[in-house]
Simulated scan of single mutants.
Amino acid sequence: MSSLEEINNFSQIFKDNKPLLDIRAPIEFAEGSFPGALNLPLMTNEERHQIGICYKDKGQESAIKLGHELLKGSLKEQRIGNWLDFANKHPTGALFCFRGGLRSKIAQEWIYEQSGISFPRIKGGYKAIRSFLIDEMSRIINEKKLLVLGGQTGCGKTLLLNELDNSIDLEGFANHRGSAFGNDVTPQPRQIDFENQLTVELIKKEIYNVFLIEDEGNNIGMIHMPDAIKIKARQSDIIILNASLEERLSISLKSYVIDMAQKFIALHGDFGFELYSNYWLNSLSKIQKRLGGDRYKILLKQLNLALINHQINEDLNDYLPLIESLLVDYYDPMYNYQIEQKKQRIIFRGNYEEVTSYLKES
């Protein structure tokens, strides 16, 4: 192995869960990277800016010289030390910069000179892998059969997806449940990170001939559905998951009340319940116009009652009339209209056990 080994089998990188060291500047990393990649930059944003100006005005040789002037002594030792910590913890890993060129080579050389460790870099860097993943998403989706899982809000589609190895949880990757109440306690990923993570999942699950996805619209929160999946899903067979209203109330109460409150409190401590309350109030406000003024006021009054009894008495019962009204009067009419447009593509309907058995058998 040479000290400047390059890796170009991008698919294997993700199948092997290879630890990735992203040495680009923080501003580049923030615009998107790959699942699990750790950012330990060669240059800060300001250093990169200075070197970029020098490169533009005076050329590469002057820019390299300035880089070595900026990165020397204890600063250089500190950055090499960070990389060595990563290399020692993750000996099967690899590093990358934007194009797999100068910055990657410098980092490799410094690591090798300091420690004798031959730590590989990814050929073509971030740009090459990103292009590869874009192409792979289209290729894999076009080669595989898609099945689309539909069903009324709260019927347990996500629970069922998580039981099956060949499922692709789009809402999980988008960190959003695809409705006005779909926000999670943490922000959605950037579009690029969503697409990268999704494609890595497709690569890892390419052994399956059929992928199961949930029936989604054009967007999941702020995330846009990639064209390859959107087009294929519109042509694919649909399986409908049925559930009683009682089951849907139970699932919705757990997902949107119990679990959400616990998440907010775990993340924000004493302020958690206040933020959880704001989540509900803001979500209901988003659909105020569609609900109509009178119905919104009734539901808002019920929500405030539910929040008070939840916080003071740990009593969740006052959520049930609110959730039932949202399901029956708001979400179900929209779902019924949408599924009517797709009814010719429905190939199976059943409850949780029936749909699970059907999918496992077929």
Score class of each variant (00 low, 15 high):
280 W>N: 02
222 M>E: 01
198 L>Q: 01
233 A>F: 06
250 S>N: 05
261 A>H: 07
211 F>I: 02
191 Q>I: 09
201 E>Q: 13
279 Y>H: 04
271 F>R: 14
189 P>M: 03
244 S>L: 05
280 W>T: 01
211 F>P: 11
220 I>F: 14
184 D>W: 11
187 P>S: 15
240 I>M: 03
208 Y>S: 07
189 P>K: 02
201 E>L: 14
262 Q>F: 13
242 N>A: 00
284 L>F: 08
188 Q>C: 00
285 S>A: 14
225 M>Y: 01
221 G>M: 07
278 N>G: 06
261 A>I: 09
258 I>H: 15
188 Q>F: 00
265 I>C: 13
257 V>L: 11
256 Y>N: 02
240 I>K: 00
283 S>G: 12
251 I>G: 03
269 G>F: 13
228 A>I: 07
227 D>T: 01
251 I>C: 08
272 G>D: 09
198 L>E: 00
196 N>D: 06
254 K>F: 12
209 N>Q: 12
273 F>M: 10
245 L>R: 04
267 L>P: 14
286 K>C: 05
211 F>L: 02
271 F>A: 15
258 I>P: 15
265 I>M: 14
200 V>G: 04
188 Q>H: 01
192 I>R: 05
245 L>C: 07
208 Y>W: 07
272 G>N: 11
277 S>H: 14
275 L>V: 05
223 I>N: 01
284 L>R: 03
195 E>F: 05
215 D>L: 00
256 Y>V: 04
188 Q>I: 00
211 F>Y: 11
231 I>Y: 08
189 P>A: 07
274 E>W: 13
252 S>A: 15
233 A>N: 08
201 E>F: 14
209 N>L: 03
253 L>H: 12
274 E>I: 10
264 F>Y: 09
248 R>D: 08
262 Q>W: 10
263 K>V: 07
224 H>K: 01
203 I>W: 05
287 I>V: 11
205 K>V: 13
248 R>C: 10
286 K>H: 10
275 L>H: 07
260 M>Q: 13
238 I>F: 02
258 I>E: 15
245 L>K: 07
266 A>Q: 10
243 A>H: 05
185 V>M: 14
199 T>R: 01
222 M>A: 02
214 E>T: 06
208 Y>A: 10
258 I>W: 15
192 I>D: 13
229 I>H: 02
273 F>N: 06
199 T>F: 10
284 L>D: 05
208 Y>Q: 03
229 I>Q: 02
282 N>L: 10
226 P>E: 07
266 A>W: 12
207 I>C: 11
223 I>T: 04
233 A>L: 03
186 T>W: 12
236 S>F: 12
224 H>I: 01
227 D>I: 00
231 I>N: 13
273 F>E: 07
208 Y>D: 13
265 I>E: 15
287 I>Y: 08
216 E>C: 02
206 E>I: 04
